[in-house]
């Protein structure tokens, strides 16, 4: 059976492996020189060209990187059943001396393992590379929509889930090209949905603080402090003001946003809605868990479909 999986999927596996390796290699190469570029940029009168170049390369690469799991869905998952049915070879393979369950488990198992390995590679690379830029930009995985799904353990689950989405749709649609199209649409919408869902996985902390414990404002959503959802200000009457309105109240010519000095002077209190940094692992676990549960459900659905009919 292992031979069959390799024989049928070797080109897809090798192609995706090559693309993934190139992607990881490129990220490492871009991130490698970043600390030096940051040092240069921070020196008084130093040039930031090197950093800006690295940053723009990084940003475009990371955007493309979010498409990689699509490959597992489209190139591995979609053909897994759809092509067998379309070619008619499903009747050949299901009448050999291998049970349907056995055939499906080996195929899905091997491909899911491969997807997991590639996910680990991406996760390790991004987890290593992102903080190198983070000190000067907002490239912290926690709170960054496009980085979060490529850092830590989440990509492992994303790849596996993409594979199973493709395979499950193939089992339903049963024709290759329509399956590919539907898989693409479902994965893109699913990714967008996941990004929209992510802030709600764990209720955020709402902290109301005076001058002594206020957060710097403005600040990035993603930072080494955690994931900041929203900053606003409360006046003495308890009314909520935006940063801009509060800044106007402060009437500080040097800062358009409130400072600690302003809060102490005006009695405004800062209201921050955020996820503390130590929740990063929980978010990782929650999202990976969610995706793996969905994957398991899809695997069961495929098995059920396959066992019942061709």
């Amino acid at each position: 059976m292992l031979w069959l999986v390799w024989r049928q999927h070797r080109w897809q596996l090798l192609t995706v492996a090559a693309v993934t390796a190139a992607y990881c290699g490129y990220l490492i190469w871009v991130a490698w020189g970043v600390p030096a570029a940051i040092d240069e940029c921070r020196t008084l009168g130093g040039a930031c060209d090197a950093f800006n170049l690295a940053k723009s390369r990084w940003d475009s690469a990371i955007l493309v990187g979010n498409l990689l799991p699509l490959a597992a869905g489209v190139f591995w998952g979609a053909p897994l059943l759809a092509r067998e049915v379309e070619q008619g070879t499903i009747r050949l393979v299901l009448t050999q001396s291998v049970s349907r369950r056995g055939w499906l488990s080996v195929k899905l198992g091997v491909l899911a393992a491969a997807a997991g390995v590639f996910g680990v590679a991406v996760g390790l690379t991004v987890s290593w590379a992102a903080p190198r830029l983070g000190s000067l930009s907002n490239d912290w995985p926690f709170g960054n929509d496009v980085l979060f799904s490529q850092a830590g353990v989440v990509p492992v689950a994303t790849w596996v889930c993409a594979l199973l989405v493709g395979a499950a749709l193939g089992a339903g649609v049963r024709r290759l090209m329509p399956t590919v199209a539907v898989t693409l649409a479902v994965l893109v919408l699913g990714f967008a949905g996941l990004v929209a869902l992510r802030p709600h996985l764990i209720p955020p902390v709402v902290a109301v603080a005076g001058a002594e414990r206020m957060m710097p404002d403005p600040w990035f959503e993603a930072s080494e402090r955690g994931w900041l959802y929203r900053v606003s200000y409360l006046d003495s009457g308890g009314r909520e003001l935006t940063s801009t309105t509060a800044g106007e109240l402060c009437a500080d010519p040097a800062n358009s946003y409130p400072t600690a000095e302003c809060l102490a002077r005006t009695g405004l209190r800062q209201r921050a809605v955020y996820q503390p940094l130590d929740r990063y692992v929980w978010f990782q676990a929650a999202e990976a868990g969610l995706l793996l549960v969905v994957s398991a459900g899809l695997a069961l659905a495929i098995r059920r479909r396959l066992v019942n009919a061709v």
């Binding site: 008619g88 009448t95 049970s99």
Partner: peptide, 17 residues
Amino acid sequence: PASLGRFAYLAQDSALY
């Protein structure tokens, strides 16, 4: 496997990979 091993099926289009 035991049950599947006792018969062979040549489907209409005799599809092979």
